[in-house]
């Protein structure tokens, strides 16, 4: 069974066609990239996928189960986690708490357990904390566990956000412009990190990215969107020489300086 199957996905904001007839099939284990000029509808795809928007048309099947109509937290519980273009960590909670709270779907206890501190609370809380600690350890973030995310440099915040998504134990990880706003040194680390995550956690990574260096180095296959339409799909090398893609990015005319 395919991990993810998107069929004929369309989304309109009023009269604006944000996404039109988007199709995709992922078998699992891929490193997929989604690129396109600004406003092409890339983030819309992620927002539709994680349940934040309800698609105007089409359906999304995740491991054979329909996701359309589920609320975001329920989609997450089924194994899809994401990061955000403009980092959205919980800034007044410590990095450690950030990584605990993201396991909310998997806490294994409820209100009464938390008030009465039952055995179920204690064993599950211990497990949640241990998982957060292990994740911080794996990503080399243990030294900032007690810090507030807002006090961390941007690159570290990105790493924390990826860590938070990983504590969800997803099968599909969506990264929305993970290289935005971080310096060139950190970009190399990020490329390593994404590859390592895929192998370490045996998951599928789908990323939106503007920096071609990241896309070309990380992705095995690419899809290109322009004005909501899928204009190309293939390996990075194929995409690089695709006429329509070049057109979408650079425009029709030969540049004057050529």
């Amino acid at each position: 069974m395919a991990l993810l199957e998107i069929k004929n996905l369309c989304h309109y904001f009023g009269g604006l066609r944000a996404l039109h007839q988007f199709d995709l099939k992922l078998e699992g284990g891929e490193l997929l990239g989604l690129i396109g000029p600004n406003g092409a509808g890339k983030t819309t795809v992620f927002n539709l996928l994680c349940g934040f928007y309800r698609p105007s048309e089409g359906e999304i099947l995740f491991r054979g189960e329909r996701l359309t109509g589920l609320r975001p937290h329920a989609v997450t519980a089924r194994g899809i986690a994401r990061t955000f273009q403009n980092i959205r960590l919980w800034n007044e909670l410590s990095v450690f708490d950030n990584l605990c709270i993201s396991q909310h779907h998997n806490l294994g206890y409820g209100l009464l357990d938390s008030l009465l501190r039952t055995g179920r609370f204690r064993t599950n809380e211990r497990r949640v904390r241990k998982q957060a600690e292990e994740m911080l350890d794996l990503l080399g973030l243990s030294h900032v566990a007690r810090e507030l995310p807002k006090n961390l440099p941007y690159g570290l915040q990105r790493r924390v956000e990826i860590g938070r998504a990983l504590t969800i134990r997803p099968q599909l990880l969506l990264l929305d412009e993970p290289a935005a706003g971080i310096n060139p040194n950190e970009v190399d680390q990020l490329i390593e990190l994404i590859r390592w995550i895929r192998d370490q956690f045996k998951l599928t990574v789908w990323l939106i990215e503007h920096q071609m260096r990241v896309v070309m180095a990380v992705c095995e296959t690419l899809k290109v969107l322009d004005f909501g339409e899928t204009i190309a799909a293939g390996t990075p090398a194929e995409i690089r020489s695709n006429k329509r893609v070049i057109q979408a990015y650079l425009g029709d005319q030969e540049p004057a300086y050529a």
Binding site: F52, R71, H73, A74, A81, R88, E92, H104, I168
Partner: peptide
């Protein structure tokens, strides 16, 4: 507290808001 800091992130990151 996650809802206070960022409700959308809370809902998407598995909190049943």
């Amino acid at each position: 507290v996650a809802i206070r800091d960022d409700e959308i992130a809370a809902e998407i990151m598995s909190v049943n808001t």
